[in-house]
């Protein structure tokens, strides 16, 4: 059992958990992730590590409510526990002084990009960060990113904050302005990472992306997370999760991530139904009395 020391929503549907996991906290490097299982009947899903505190023995994970497991997770509060957390998994990001690095975070992907941005800055790079979200509320970790970047650009799809448009629009402008870019690191939804890859391929800018295929064990045993990299099967959990964006077959990734869409939909509907039912039961007067009587 891993205790949640602190849980707080940082945006609508996006929650940050500070979790007691001393072994993971001690070893975590930028670019790595954890796999969690919420309870006995739960599935195993990979999640982003935002940062860790080796002294306090805690890791921060940032979770966006999408399916049943992430919704269930985001219903947990400070003081609750998560049954299993294993990590840190995957190869750490390559951190060197490349020169100028553009770090791009789309939505909750910003949390995964943050520790890399921080490490790249420490390694002496000039860090230009571009983060984006659908609207102002969904732009996360702007303050944290500003602390570790030379420049931060924010974009929103609806223009409610920062520039109206996509993170790639801002990247386009940087390229067109003649900004020297030695490397790009992009973490976010697959269409965003693909768009970045397509753009930088033409410009011959080395680009890394952090992939999020379906995973089970996270140690290379199951092969469920295989991605096609330049025609070769690679496992995101042991060979990645970061790959050279110009070699990744994004179409296969999209296709494979959709494999359980029907089941995922059913799980989420049943979970929501369950939550509603529990709410209704809790609201019934005699139950409420019984609970009060207990107190």
């Amino acid at each position: 059992m891993f205790k949640i020391v602190h849980a707080q929503f940082i945006a609508p549907g996006i929650k940050r958990f500070v979790i007691e996991a001393p072994r993971i906290a001690r070893k975590q490097r930028p670019g790595q992730f954890v796999i969690i299982r919420v309870n006995e009947t739960g599935e195993r899903i990979p999640l982003t590590i935002e940062k860790s505190d080796p002294e306090k023995g805690t890791v921060n994970i940032v979770v966006q409510s999408i399916g049943k497991t992430t919704n269930l997770l985001n219903s947990l509060e400070t003081g609750d526990s998560i049954l299993d957390i294993v990590g840190p998994l995957g190869k750490p990001s390559e951190i060197e002084n490349f020169g100028t690095v553009v770090v791009m975070g789309g939505g909750v992907g910003t949390a995964m990009a943050y520790p890399s941005a921080s490490a790249l800055k420490k390694a002496g790079n000039r860090v230009i960060t571009i983060i984006g979200g659908r609207n102002k509320d969904l732009v996360i970790l702007e303050k944290e990113m500003r602390e570790v970047s030379d420049t931060v650009f924010v974009t929103t799809d609806d223009g409610s904050y920062g520039d109206k448009g996509l993170v790639t629009d801002r990247l386009r402008q940087l390229i067109d302005n003649g900004t020297r870019i030695d490397e790009v690191l992009a973490v976010g939804p697959i269409p965003m990472m693909k768009a970045v890859a397509d753009m930088t391929r033409k410009e011959h800018i080395k680009t890394m992306v952090s992939l999020n295929p379906i995973m089970i064990d996270g140690t290379g045993m199951c092969g469920g997370c295989r991605v096609l990299v330049e025609g070769k099967s690679e496992f995101a959990c042991v060979d990645g999760p970061e790959f050279d964006a110009h070699r990744v077959d994004f179409a296969i990734l999209v296709q494979r991530n959709a494999m359980y869409r029907d089941a995922e939909k059913r799980s989420l509907e049943e979970y929501k139904h369950e939550v509603e039912k529990n709410k209704a039961t809790a609201a019934e007067p005699e139950v409420a009395c019984a609970l009060e009587g207990k107190k």
Binding site: T41, G42, E43, R44, K68, T69, I216, M259, Y260, A263, E264, R266, S267, E270
Partner: peptide, 15 residues
């Protein structure tokens, strides 16, 4: 390990 044959009682899905 994940009891996918008991979906949806267990969360791990299977085709």
């Amino acid at each position: 390990l994940m009891h996918a044959y008991e979906f949806p009682k267990y969360d791990e899905p299977m085709v």
